[in-house]
Design a protein around this nucleic acid. Structure first.
Length: 422
RNA sequence: GUGAGUGUAGCUCAGUUGGCAGAGCACCAGGUUGUGGCCCUGGGGGCCGUGGGUUCAAGUCCCAUCACUCACCCCA
């Protein structure tokens, strides 16, 4: 009789060792790097009221229309597994009145997001992001510093081949005029547009700009550029961002077609792309969202942030530095029951003293255990048998040099701690 | 939601016009009573994704279904 195997839910994945150690080190690097820039960690829950995302991301975005995991909570509230983190961080900023003490606040958060899309290379239904959000700062220098922080983070990880794409989406002052102009133009050639774009024409004409359907691309080939419609303030802001980036030696490309999928962005929008991940080329993306805090019921405070796709970053990183198992510093190899009893205690104490150890209690032959130690990449083995027990010693063998030394048992932990260089 | 490709051992994959299920690597044991890597010998491992159909006979042909992968849409 065969029990039915329960498998992963479609689009979800297990992250296994040794790859998990890559995740750990990237996350550690992010924490250190972001904290150097004055960011502190915030950990909002993964479950929120559906309304939070409907109001922030926008009713007519793909995310809200078809990609959210939403289900009935208690009473008549709808709950959603977060498809992105910014809305939650904004909600927390408002709910805990963090602005009251000091409106300027910087947060980062690392965790899983959920979107019900068809899985594909670099895209999962549960995926991980590193988010950074800045509140209460409207200066364009903040925009530049944020992009700088992001790019130097990648540099720290030695991930290269990344390109910054930059655009400005204007503000409520200047965007309507552009939107109007664009709508008029697109309406005139509606028969050339794909069905999706016909819907976008009504709800969000800017999105037609980044449609990949050839006919749509042709239709918008000579479309007006938002950059020509920027008001004085937005224009000034955008120019200052560019100048600051140049001053910080961050290369970028102006990309007037860069329209992000979330409705809340204003002014600066950017995406960091790679050519090495197949179709899903965005490794990070973000922008300014100066109206969102107020839209969600908080005070009028400007804000800007970005999200890094951790899964994609790990993939880029592993392409360059493949994950590998690291063996123990000391592999305990007891021969016989009496030895196993002693090794159980010694190896535990050594681990507790900060040395990475592993002990084998299987009772297999010395040869078999030596092979096992070799395979797992142990730096050295400690052999304990009847002879050693009788003489109150153990044999410490260096697997690389094959040197063997006798270690007095009563000082075993101290001796090995020193020997390993701790 | 749409399209294409792939499902055989832990992994990578062969499998001829339909005729007893295979290799390499990995794993285990022995060659060496308590010393790893190389070598030699032997061994364990499989509902051939699942269900149905055709056939004397199906991993192979047909149908369905599921899963995975890639791509579209969109994004991190």
């Amino acid at each position: 009789m065969r029990t039915l195997m329960i498998q992963l839910v479609r689009g979800f994945k297990d992250i296994l060792p040794p790859e998990t150690s890559v995740w750990q080190s990237i996350e550690d690097t992010a924490r250190r790097h972001f904290e150097n820039f004055g960011f502190r960690e915030i950990r909002p829950p993964v479950l929120e009221q559906a309304a939070l995302f409907q109001r922030s991301i926008g009713e007519h975005t793909d995310i809200v229309e078809k990609e959210m995991y939403t289900f009935a909570g208690s009473r008549d509230t709808l709950l959603t597994l977060r498809p992105e983190a910014t809305a939650s961080v904004v909600r927390a900023y408002i709910q805990h009145k963090i602005y009251a003490a000091d409106p300027a606040a910087r947060f980062y958060t690392i965790g899983p997001m959920f979107r019900k899309e068809r899985p594909q290379k670099g895209r999962y239904r549960q995926f991980y992001q590193i988010n950074a959000e800045v509140f209460g700062v409207d200066s364009p220098y903040m925009d530049a510093q944020l992009i700088y922080m992001c790019m130097t983070f990648f540099r720290r990880l030695s991930v290269s081949g990344l390109q910054v794409h930059l655009n400005s989406l204007g503000c409520p002052e200047c965007r309507p005029a552009f939107r109007q102009k664009l709508s008029e133009m697109l309406a005139g050639r509606a028969e050339n547009l794909c069905p999706d774009c016909l819907r976008r024409l009504e709800k969000n004409p800017l999105r037609v700009l980044d449609c990949k359907v050839p006919a749509c691309r042709a239709a918008v080939a000579d479309a007006p550029s938002m950059l020509d419609f920027l008001c004085d303030d937005c224009g000034q802001h955008f120019r200052t961002v560019q100048a600051a980036l140049a001053d910080m030696d961050i290369d970028f490309q102006i990309d007037p077609r860069l329209v992000r999928g979330l409705d809340y962005y204003t002014r600066t929008a950017f995406e960091i792309q790679t050519s090495e991940l197949g179709a899903q080329n965005a490794v990070a993306g973000g922008g300014r969202y100066d109206q969102l805090v107020e839209m969600l019921g908080g005070p009028a405070q400007p804000a800007i942030g970005f999200a890094i796709g951790l899964d994609r970053l790990v993939e880029l990183f592993c392409a360059k530095f493949p994950a590998s198992e690291t063996g123990p510093e000391v592999f305990f190899l007891p021969m016989g029951d009496a030895a196993r009893k002693r090794v159980a205690k010694w190896s535990s104490e050594l681990a507790n003293a900060g040395v990475r150890v592993e002990a084998d209690f299987s009772g297999r032959s010395l040869k078999a255990l030596m092979r096992r130690a070799d395979r797992m990449g142990a730096a050295r083995v400690l052999i304990v048998g009847d002879q050693e027990l009788a003489e109150n010693k153990a044999v410490l063998r260096d697997m690389k040099t094959r040197d063997q030394a006798e270690v007095p048992m009563d000082r075993l932990v101290e001796f090995i701690s020193e020997h390993v260089g701790r």
